[in-house]
Simulated scan of single mutants.
Amino acid sequence: MIRLNRGVAAVLAAILLAAPAAANDSVASMGAGGLVLQRTDGIEMRSEDLYVSAAEIRVRYRFYNRTQRDISTIVAFPMPDLQGGDEAVPLEDPLQMPFTTTVNGRRVATNVEQKAIFNGVDHSGLLRGLAVPFTPRGEATMQALAALPRPQIEMLIEMGLIEDRSWTDAGVRQLDLVPLWTLKTTHYWTQVFPAGRELDVRHQYTPAVGGSAGSVFGDPAMEAGEYASQAATRYCTDDAFRAGARRMRARGLYLTETWVDYILTTGANWAEPIGEFRLVVDKGSSRNLVSFCGEGVRKIGPTRFEIRRRNYTPTQDLSVLILTGIRFDD
């Protein structure tokens, strides 16, 4: 069920640290604090063909250098954030997820920049010095934190980087240190855009999706709460979506949510609006429900929905909610 009442796309992220999810390609420079996204007046994005699902993201671009000289620049592709705290996020480090880039059909090796960010501040150097992995979830990070001397743990707590949720069971203290920082990962490479020529650039990867073990949707007592209100803004959930969720519950299904985000706004960094833009969102199963914000959405298959635009300047990001029903055996 899809509400067609607002555009698919967030305000241009001028600095890489502001990018919360996978993103369109953008030209970049290497600043003192790492990669910085920039705008270019010499290269056009003639087309973007984007496929988004919980299992895979594929994107194909056609770039054109409209100048009379070759342009060599860093091209950056931010990956999904991994957030600490209580957020239902995947445990995998994005570096462990398959990611491929091709230019004119040839595989290109990308470099990777990772940063541990909390409240807009880069704490990568501190964590590196303490031998703590940047990934805010996972056994290796938990073990590294637990092995720190207590003064260093207290320092991280004081800085707000971790929260001590330890408890005592049968007189034995159980250590539970929860990282609160966010891991930001960006693939990047140096690309030459030949004068007066097009380049075909493609990315394919497994997204780091978020999700919940349950859902408020389909439960009238909970649908009036704050989360449902936030979801209505973020995913444009509407009456039809909520009615579908209630029907799923009436069939005895237990509902879970999957969230997929994609930053479109870095597509505004090129010389002109995107000439031809196509987005396909795939909900994975015809039994699932999907909701996302967009104008002119049309269904093109049992699980796929499409948006097409010409001369498109993205101004907001894409957030997709997939609702799945599970039947437990008695």
Rank of each mutant, 00 (worst) to 15 (best):
A144Y: 07
L255K: 02
A144D: 06
L82M: 12
R58Q: 15
Q143F: 13
L82I: 15
W259K: 12
S229Q: 15
Q68V: 11
R150P: 06
S29K: 14
G196N: 05
T256K: 07
L4E: 15
V11S: 15
R197D: 11
D49P: 00
R165F: 02
P207A: 04
M159R: 13
D317I: 01
T324I: 02
A116Y: 04
L127R: 03
R202C: 08
T266M: 10
P314R: 00
E295H: 13
G267M: 07
L130G: 03
A271E: 09
A76L: 01
P194K: 02
V52Y: 09
R246I: 06
Y64W: 07
D81M: 12
P273F: 06
E154F: 07
G252S: 05
L17A: 15
V201C: 02
T266K: 01
T67M: 11
S166M: 01
I307V: 08
E306L: 04
G325F: 01
D41L: 09
I274C: 03
E87D: 15
N65F: 06
Q174Y: 09
R278N: 07
Y188F: 08
S26F: 03
A13P: 14
L127T: 03
A228I: 01
P314G: 04
G42W: 15
E272H: 06
D282S: 00
S53H: 10
T237K: 01
T185F: 08
G34D: 03
L127G: 06
A19K: 02
R234H: 05
P80N: 11
A10E: 14
I326Y: 14
S72M: 12
R310W: 13
F328M: 10
A243C: 02
G296S: 09
V260P: 00
D169I: 13
T237A: 04
E163T: 04
C293P: 00
T266H: 08
P78C: 07
R249M: 03
G129K: 07
M79S: 05
R298F: 04
T256M: 09
L321S: 00
R202W: 08
G171N: 00
R251G: 06
P98N: 09
E306R: 02
N269W: 05
D282C: 00
L50Q: 04
F277Y: 12
M45P: 01
V59C: 05
R3V: 00
G7D: 15
G42C: 12
V290F: 04
L91T: 07
L253H: 05
A213M: 10
Q143K: 13
F77L: 13
H123K: 03
D70V: 02
Q143T: 13
I153Q: 09
L279M: 05
G31M: 04
D176Y: 12
V75Y: 08
K184M: 11
V36Y: 12
L16A: 14
Q96I: 11
K115P: 01
N119M: 13
Q96M: 12
T67V: 07
D25C: 10
S124N: 03
G129L: 03
D176L: 09
D239A: 13
P133I: 06
P133T: 07
G31W: 07
G129C: 02
V52R: 01
T67F: 10
L126M: 10
